[in-house]
Design a protein around this nucleic acid. Structure first.
Length: 426
RNA sequence: GGAGAGAUGACCGAGAGGCCGAAGGUGCACGCUUGGAAAGCGUGUGUACUCCAACAGGGUACCGCGGGUUCGAAUCCCGCUCUCUCCGCCA
């Protein structure tokens, strides 16, 4: 969330930003509630001051009559404090609720725009493969090679679930190892995180577990939810802590399952493994000094490129436009890999995303560091190292061969132990 | 899951309704002392919000968290969380 005072002092640019990001939020209302809250708070503080003064007069022995008067006065003060406090709590609740709706500010270089079409492609890498035959999509490949079983998963778990089978299982593990090794090499602390997190942490990261259109599965009878990404558990790692600035940047990687409700998401462009309720992902997370977050953002993107270059899959990088940015992001770069089976003749499909969330998450989660005696919020960034289901999809579609087999990129063979997936399986 | 013990400032540790934002110690900072260091001595040392021109001064809140009792709560009552020990159960 943004700082209340920041909103008040920069109202014009906050309003403009909300408009650009196509978010339903009302900064004016927030400022009004903030002022109202402060007025009430002052009034209450005055009353408390009187109460404290009144009480200290009774520290000494007093004649009964005098004491009785003071007690009466104290009772009166107590009552007015209680009524004022009730009003205050209601205002604060509303203020918080409204403030949560206000998105992060936006990087001055982020493209301004409404929708996907306004995202700006800033780089392309690799050759889009050309096939001497009509390439299949991964659903068909997965079925023919007995690698992915959607039908049984639908019976057992519901729509948009899948069983990985045979080489696809090894491939998932290989992709995970491949990514983790790269990250270890980059000095990241690798972790396997819990797949469940408290609602308050998820909310601090910017997910709303309770909203009607929430993408998050909540766990009945608890204040917890299934994580939609390890960003939640990695971002929560240092919540409410004051970090030693000499430890920054802190670079962490987390392997977790990701659970998403994806209500209403359907259709040609989200079929198969592209949009599922559960997948495995290695996520990168960085806590850094505010002056370093732009640099760290580029760094995350570099690693993501390295991962996909190693896999030999053509991709492009997209600078996400204002209308498409999620609430916490100050700026976001996506990598879209070429997916030959997507749409009629192949298409780009998002495989990673790297966001600089500046202090937006840190403020709610209370992640700070001390500098010159002052406490400041760190900047927090996250990026996908490998989202297995989509990487797997891209791999199957890009490395398919005319005879129906699928090749394995050089970089993965040490992890898979096989160099192709064919029809014959012993 | 059951039983018991506990949760106080950077840390250790007093506290038992008003004199407690909190003794004492350690640590840390500054100063004195010293040829230099150690020791010793002195002073200072939480956070958030807020008033104010103010890094001067004031106010409010904070003794795990949330409620309650009271004119007044770190201190009493209730609920919760966490930690430790023992038992149970397991991968």
């Amino acid at each position: 969330m943004l700082d209340y005072r920041y909103i008040k002092e920069n109202l014009e640019s906050v309003v403009e930003n909300v408009k650009r990001r196509k978010v339903k939020a009302d900064p004016l209302l927030v400022v009004r509630l903030y002022d109202e809250r402060n007025d009430h708070l002052h009034r209450i503080e005055e009353l408390r001051k009187k109460r404290n003064e009144n009480a200290s007069k009774m520290k000494v022995k007093l004649p009964d009559k005098e004491r009785k008067l003071l007690v009466e006065e104290g009772k009166r003060l107590k009552e007015s404090i209680a009524t004022e406090e009730e009003v205050l709590f209601e205002i604060e609740r509303k203020l918080y609720e409204e403030a949560l709706k206000i998105p992060n500010m936006t990087h001055p270089e982020a493209p301004v725009g409404e929708g996907e079409g306004d995202n700006v492609e800033i780089k392309r890498w690799g050759e889009i493969p050309s096939f001497s035959f009509k390439p299949k999509d991964h659903v068909q490949i997965g079925k023919e090679l007995d690698l992915v079983d959607f039908d049984t998963a639908t019976k057992v778990s519901g729509q948009k679930f899948y069983y990985l089978k045979n080489e696809a299982v090894i491939l998932e593990l290989a992709l995970v190892r491949y990514a983790l090794d790269i990250l270890s090499g980059e000095g990241f602390t690798v972790t396997i995180t819990p797949d469940i997190a408290k609602d308050e942490i998820a909310q601090g990261i910017g997910f709303n577990p309770r909203g009607e259109e929430s993408n998050i599965y909540r766990i009945e009878g608890t204040d917890t939810c299934l994580v939609g990404t390890a960003e939640i558990t990695l971002g929560g790692y240092y919540s409410k802590e004051i970090l030693d600035p000499s430890t920054l940047p802190i670079k962490m990687a987390g392997l977790s399952h990701c659970f998403r409700r994806e209500a209403g998401a359907a259709g040609q462009f989200s079929k198969g493994l592209y949009r599922v309720h559960q997948f495995t992902k290695v996520e990168m997370f960085i806590y850094c000094h505010p002056s370093k977050s732009d640099e760290m953002h580029k760094y995350l993107l570099d690693i993501e490129e390295k991962v996909f270059q190693g896999l030999g899959i053509a991709y492009r990088i997209v600078d996400t436009c204002t209308g498409e940015l999620g609430g916490p992001a100050y700026r976001k770069f996506d990598i879209e890999a070429w997916m030959p089976g997507r749409g009629e003749n192949g298409d780009w499909g998002e495989v990673t995303s790297a966001s600089n969330c500046t202090d937006y998450q840190a403020r709610r989660l209370g992640v700070r560091f001390k500098e010159n005696g002052k406490r400041r919020f760190v900047h927090m960034l996250n990026g996908t190292a490998i989202a297995v289901s989509r990487a797997l999809l891209a791999l199957l579609e890009n490395y398919q061969r005319e005879d129906g087999s699928v090749g394995i990129p050089e970089a993965l063979i040490p992890y898979t132990g096989f160099s192709e997936i064919g029809h014959s399986r012993s």
